[in-house]
Structures are given as structure tokens and as C-alpha cells.
Write a protein that binds this DNA or RNA. Sequence first.
DNA 1: TGCAACCGATTGCGAAATGCAATCAGTTTT
DNA 2: AAAACTGATTGCATTTCGCAATCGGTTGCA
Lengths: 173, 173
Amino acid sequence: MSMDRRSGCPINLSLEVFGDRWSLIILRDMIFGGRRHFREMLNGSMEGIASNILADRLKRLMELGMLTKADDPSHKQKAIYSLTEMAITLVPILAHLGAWGRVWLPVSDELSIRAELLEKGGQPMWDKFMDELRHEHLGMPLDTMSGPSVRATLQAAYEAVVASKALAASTAA
Amino acid sequence: MSMDRRSGCPINLSLEVFGDRWSLIILRDMIFGGRRHFREMLNGSMEGIASNILADRLKRLMELGMLTKADDPSHKQKAIYSLTEMAITLVPILAHLGAWGRVWLPVSDELSIRAELLEKGGQPMWDKFMDELRHEHLGMPLDTMSGPSVRATLQAAYEAVVASKALAASTAA
DNA sequence: TGCAACCGATTGCGAAATGCAATCAGTTTT
DNA sequence: AAAACTGATTGCATTTCGCAATCGGTTGCA
């Protein structure tokens, strides 16, 4: 593991944790995609991560305290990866990152709808989401259960955009 | 230049812009350190960036629209690097990143004081800071001038911590 | 006029990271 | 018994990284 400690600057140290091309992508898929298993992350990855890179990053993120691994009772070989509190608190950063990318970069409509909703929802939505993630990954009680989960809301919006684009394409043809 | 476009996801695209170990460090030094020249960034870099990496990243950040370069009137060979609006709007992300790192990583006292103040200042402070950066780098008028600049405030706090640590060390000895 | 210091880079090179395909042993399903 | 699936591991070619040395040109000072 690369424990550089180039400096004690908070921004530098944060970059040393996820300042590479894959770590945050993996966490994004776990947080927003609800992925928990190796194969899910491998095959479900939109960007096409290689299996050795995935294995390496999962190991690294565990050593850094961002993830934990547990046996899946349903399958002796299956491992379930869980987010730690440290990783769950990245939600506001991911929200800001998505909002920034949506403004300045050539994002696709269907993939940016989540970022848009998350931005509009603001801190209250992020808090609700983190609460849901703590329930899912850490077994904490859901103290503010109200309506559909944030992930389901985002997913539904994503699918609505995909459907509307498919409809527009078929009527145009 | 690597225009991957692995996917149109806002988070992925953001990572393709500054998802490496140096780009954000350079921007941090320009934003918080007020660095504008190549040598300033090279020698003032706490983490010790190499000159070829710095040159490569400056070029890359210019191609991506995060920086611009202009001649320094005082020195025919000197170049002044300026942040674009795209880079200035990274301030909230850097603030969140610093806040997260301060909680979860082994930051040093003197280097985390800035992140602490920036976190406590919240959006109003970030807005004031971005306004000052627009003035500095884009020549925009300062419409909300009030008191010392955010950078000066952060710098003074940093120096106060350094001084108090030096005092503590000398009295202990 | 000479010369050292400084300017933004560039080059060469070994080390490390990346991306891809093939493969592994064990588990579950069929 | 075979096929599909589990979380990985290995080998290998390519790319990137980090470091030191160096470049041609500019500036300030003696």
C-alpha cells in the first residue's frame, strides 16, 4: 500500500485516498448503484473496470478503512462489501462533484438526472441518503423513514429519462 | 491528451478532469496559495511536484479549460497562469474535501486550520472567496468588498497556529 | 561587458501503474 | 456429471510517473 504522506494537508491526504481513476467510481457504484458483490461491480461497471484493478482497489479501500468485507450466508464463496461511515460521509462530496460536472462537462442526460436531483435535494436529501446507507451497510436503525428511498427515487428518475428518450427515438423513426 | 469519455456520468467526467494525484494540488496552490508562476508552484509545492509533471498538468488543465496563460509584462519569459470560472467553482468541492479529510485522515494541525475555517464559514465564505478569485484572475469588479480577503484570513490563521506551535516547542525546550 | 541567477519548460530513464485476456480453485445450479 | 458462477490471480504489453539533468532564453547586478 502506498502510504505516501506527502504532506498533512487535508486535500492532499484526501487525494491520496481516492485521487485515482477508479476508487471513486467503485464507491459511486456501491453508493448509488447499491452494488455489494465483486461480479456486480465488475459487470455492472459502466466504465468497464478490469478485474485485477477492481480487486486491487477493493483491497486498498479496505486497508484504508473505507470498506469492510463479510461472508455472504447464501453462498460460501460470495463476499459482501460494505461501506464504512468514512465512505458514507463522501455523499456530499459526490453530490458536489456531480453538480460541478453537470455544469462544466459533456454529461449525458440520463446519467446527469441523478446529479441534478441530488443537487436540488441539498443537504436534507444527502442526510436522508446517508441514513439509508447506514441502515443498509452498518445495520443502523432507520430513524427518519419517510417515503421511497433516495436511491429508488434517483433510479426511477433515471429510468424515466431513459424511457422518454427511447420513446422520442421510436416516434422519430 | 486523454479524452477517454469512459462514460457520460458527471462523477466520471469530473474524475477524468482532476482524478489524478497532482491536478487538484496545483489548483489548491493557485486558489489558496495565490500562486501564479511556474517557479512559484514548483518551489512552493509542499508535496514536491516535479517540473515535468507540473508542465504537463498545466498544459492539460489549459486544454481542459481550467486555466489560461498570459505573458507577464514585467518579464518577457514569465507566464502568468489564471484560473477560469470553471476552476473557481471548485471552491465548494475543495472545502468539502478538506472538511472530509480533516475528520478522517491524519492531518496536521497547522494545515487543517484553513479547512476548518472554510468549513465553518460555509457557503457565504465560499461565495466571498470565489468573488475575490474572479477579481484576481478574471478582472471582475469586487462587488462585496468587506474586510480582509478570505485568503488573507486563512493565511493569518495558518501563521498563528505555526507561531503558537513554535512557541510551545521553545518553552518546552 | 561579463556572469550568475532565474524563466518556463524538455529530455532520458528506471519504476510503477494500467488494461486486457486467460486462468484458477471452489460452489452452486442444472 | 456438466455447466455456470464465485472472488480473485497471473502474465504481459503499454502507458504513466517521478526524478535528475539539462535546455535556450531573460534579467539583474558588478
